[in-house]
Design a protein around this nucleic acid. Structure first.
Length: 782
RNA sequence: GGGCGAUUAGCUCAGUUGGUUCAGAGCGUCUGCCUUACAAGCAGAAUGUCAGCGGUUCGAAUCCGUUAUCGCCCACCA
């Protein structure tokens, strides 16, 4: 064996073993693209939990997989299509694009699977799933149908976040804000009767053609006389009222008047609803101004803005232009400005569902760890904002709805006796027909046309169903009966999962976010991201996993100082000195095993034949056994409480201080190992010690059974507590003198110990069995 | 503006009821060792107004109040 732990060699052997045995069985959700450090953290924690449960005799299931990441994936493939062939998705059509995305998906799925496997996660790979698999698609359809039938899904024109490049609605959390320098234009809004004007300021003059009111504060004396009067919208000569609204208007801000554009601003939209104002959409899907914008039709973005401002100036309406800084929402995927946009979308009503989810948290049915996040989650749920589930994409689960202008009688006649079909009247005429199982034919209703909905569902709709769908729901499969509901959702702070119906897990563990040394979020664009694969390459998987676990405190963020480093192959990678601790620990375990192997080999044969007498154990044997007991107990508690960093630290100290610096050291001293050759040492090794070693090692470094390196960074870690330290005092780290001080025995001259020859044997069968039972029980409970 | 978190050694962080070796660990630094499991190691050393101020207490890194700085979330940004 090498004196250093060579992670590459060892890991190569392990992956082979795992592959052949298919020995691991898995809940988890994968992600597209490449693994980043957050995934490594998340998956390490899940793996620790899964291995812990499995080792303590639980029937565990961890299903690996990936979601289809609708927007992200389609955006990537569309971009590629354009770069390679200068074509848009409309050039090749829905089917062809979807086909291309499937191909790309196969690539990234293969990559992510490979990376997950190299992380050593113990999922059941035979059950690997993808959210667009037929079994998942079926679950999605059933879930949608159920909600639809309960009246919890509706379609309507609502203001949504619109990505004008990808031309789809996007979720709030798919938007990032950029602080930009803009302008604040103040202009005259002329009264319709020509008797004067009201000054108004805006950051978005180009939306003026969509104005349907001008709001002032009801208590603002300056404008009291104008309330109820009509104004004339420049360029389009439409008349709009002056209204009073205390919610929208802050009379001390700007001019104290606000132009109201309900179709293009969330607050204006709300105001429009309050005052029942018309909502005039002046934009096309691509963000260009439409026919409602009059002479500005066809202009887009900055050009539209400039033209409108120039127009206002021409009309003599412009009063002043000021600099103004503001946060502007951008789409994560296309990096373009997000427009609030009025469009037909599908929504899930959240009032009842949110109430259920809140109750589940309040009652303790779902436990959120750390607890402080429970309030945040409740606050978030309390808003009960309806969830926009439609996306104008081609990649995803197509909404199982068919539009028709058939009458209710015709529908009833066509679908009589069908409980897999449900329909209701749409907001804007016609009927919406939902089919649970099969796609409907265009001519399913004689004389009428059925047209399938073009939109697909938000990816979250399907990934939120992961615990159900991967286990075969809605069929009542054996897997579902056996494993549902699941135990734990391990997630990052910003991902909030919705549950639709039953409670899918009893615990949500929220792990910290890894930042760089300057407290910055790691990202590709900043170039400060650490690639877990680079760390595996440089320090080994165990090191990576150990450090991931030891970073995982109760904090909201943890910092990982990042430094650039040139590799031998010329590649520059981001790495961190933090990982050295993991590598060093791997090496320590490796060498502890090298110390023990000769003795273990002896013990293997002897233990089977010889009875063992516990009373003949040397003091240090009893001591280390007692240490083992308390560390097992405490480590178990830490696992139960999700204290991963604490756990990693305790096990580190147990192995390094107690086992190596104290116990092994003592063995060396007692038997004068340092003067002997390896073979002789093996011969002298007391079987009692060796049996213990064997048990202990199988326990926390089980790799050694195969004559291989310990897989320590997993979950079977052992630690001691502070109060124990005060009793036995091994808390003092390292060091000869300090380690000795840790001993429960008086130090004695070496020759005395040797003279007494504290070798032990198993003297009788019953005692030996007792010992084995003792070991079994305690080890098994971990 | 509202809520949450953080501030402890040069760096990254522990410190779970206020109390005994509670002022700690790793990394880094300095000194000496290639001692037969481990130089990715071993033996030693230096390093702190526990952010500031005030309070409670026999006793405070720990509890309370307050200020400052940093971060996160939510709302607002016409």
């Amino acid at each position: 064996m090498e004196t250093r732990y060579n992670s590459k060699d060892v890991e190569a052997r392990w992956h082979k073993t795992w592959a052949e045995n298919n020995s691991f069985a898995p809940s988890g959700k994968g992600e597209p693209g490449a693994l980043h450090l957050g995934h490594a953290l998340n998956d390490t924690l899940q793996d620790i939990l899964v291995r812990y449960r499995r080792k303590t005799g639980r029937d565990t299931l961890w299903i690996p997989g990936t979601d289809h990441a609708g927007i992200a994936t389609q955006a990537v493939v569309e971009k590629r299509l354009f770069q390679d062939e200068h074509k848009t998705r409309h050039d090749i059509g829905r089917d062809a694009l979807v086909e291309r995305i499937w191909k790309w998906k196969d690539e990234y799925e293969a990559r992510i699977t490979k990376q997950l496997k190299s992380l050593g996660v113990s999922c059941d790979w035979s059950r690997q799933r993808f959210t667009l698999d037929p079994v998942c698609a079926k679950a999605v359809r059933h879930a949608f149908f159920n909600l639809f039938k309960k009246g919890l899904i509706y379609r309507g024109k609502r203001l949504v976040n619109w990505d004008t490049k990808l031309q789809t609605a996007v979720a709030d959390d798919e938007i990032y804000y950029e602080h930009v320098k803009g302008h604040f234009w103040t202009f005259k809004y002329p009264l319709a009767d020509g008797s004067g004007f009201i000054p108004v300021s805006t950051t978005r003059p180009e939306t003026i053609m969509g104005d349907t009111a001008l709001a002032v504060h009801p208590n603002d004396e300056r404008y009291a006389q104008f309330i109820g009067k009509m104004l004339k919208v420049p360029f389009v000569d439409r008349e709009i009222p002056v209204i009073a609204d205390a919610i929208l208007v802050d009379k001390d801000f700007g001019t104290g008047s606000v132009k109201v554009t309900p179709a293009h601003d969330p607050n204006d939209y709300a105001t429009g609803l309050r005052h029942k104002l018309p909502m005039i959409n002046i934009m096309n899907d691509d963000g260009s101004l439409n026919e409602n914008a009059g002479k500005f039709q066809g202009l887009k973005g900055q050009a539209a803005r400039d033209a409108v401002v120039a127009g206002l100036e021409e009309l003599g309406l412009l009063i002043k232009v000021e600099d103004h800084e503001m946060d502007v929402g951008h789409s994560d995927r296309s990096k373009t400005v997000i427009e609030p946009y009025l469009s037909d979308q599908w929504f899930v009503k959240m009032d009842v569902l949110a109430e259920n989810a809140m109750n589940a948290v309040k009652s303790g049915e779902i436990k959120i760890i750390p607890e402080r996040y429970a309030n945040k989650y409740l606050d978030w749920l309390a808003e009960k904002r309806d969830w926009c589930i439609s996306r104008q994409l081609w990649w995803g689960h197509r909404i199982p709805i068919w539009h028709t202008d058939a009458s209710e009688d015709e529908l009833k006649a066509a679908f009589a006796g069908r409980d897999d079909i449900y329909f209701y009247k749409a907001e804007n005429g016609g009927y919406l027909v939902c089919s649970q199982e099969e796609d409907l034919k265009e001519d399913a209703i004689p004389g009428r046309v059925l047209k399938q909905e073009e939109d697909v569902l938000d990816t979250w709709f399907s990934s939120g169903l992961w615990p159900h769908s991967t286990m075969g729901w809605p069929e009542n499969t054996d897997t579902l009966k056996r494993y549902y509901p699941t135990s734990v959702l391990v997630t990052s702070r910003d991902i909030i999962t919705l549950n639709m119906g039953t409670v899918p897990f009893h615990t949500v563990y929220i792990h910290p976010k890894i930042l760089d040394g300057n407290g910055q979020t790691m990202s590709k664009s900043k170039g400060n991201g650490v690639d877990p694969m680079d760390i595996e390459e440089k320090y080994g998987t165990d090191a990576l996993r150990f450090v991931m676990a030891s970073l995982c405190t109760d904090n909201q963020d943890v910092r990982l100082p990042v430094k650039k480093e040139k590799q031998p192959d010329g590649r520059e990678i981001n790495t961190s000195e933090k990982f050295e601790i993991g590598r060093n620990f791997s090496n320590k375990l490796w060498n502890a095993c090298r110390f023990l192997y000769p003795q273990l080999e002896q013990a293997g044969a002897l233990a089977a034949e010889l009875p063992m007498d516990k009373s003949l154990f040397a003091l240090e044997d009893k001591w280390i056994l007692s240490r083992l007991q308390t560390t097992i107990k405490d480590a178990t508690r830490m696992l139960e409480e999700y204290h991963f960093a604490e756990l990693a630290g305790f096990l580190y100290r147990f192995v390094w201080d107690d086992v190596c610096s104290s116990y092994h050291r003592r063995k060396e001293e007692r038997h004068g190992y340092s003067q002997l050759r390896a073979e002789e040492r093996a011969r002298l090794a007391p079987p009692g010690d060796a049996v213990h070693y064997r048990r202990a090692q199988q326990h926390f470094v089980p790799g050694q059974r195969n004559g291989d390196q310990p897989r320590m960074a997993q979950g079977r870690r052992i630690a001691h507590r502070r109060e124990d330290r005060s009793r036995i005092r091994p808390g003092i780290r390292r060091g000869g003198k300090r380690a000795w001080r840790a001993w429960p025995l008086q130090r004695e001259p070496r020759h005395q110990a040797q003279r007494r020859g504290e070798r032990r044997r198993c003297r009788n069968r019953s005692q030996c069995e007792g010992l084995h039972g003792y070991h079994h029980r305690t080890l098994g409970s971990f």
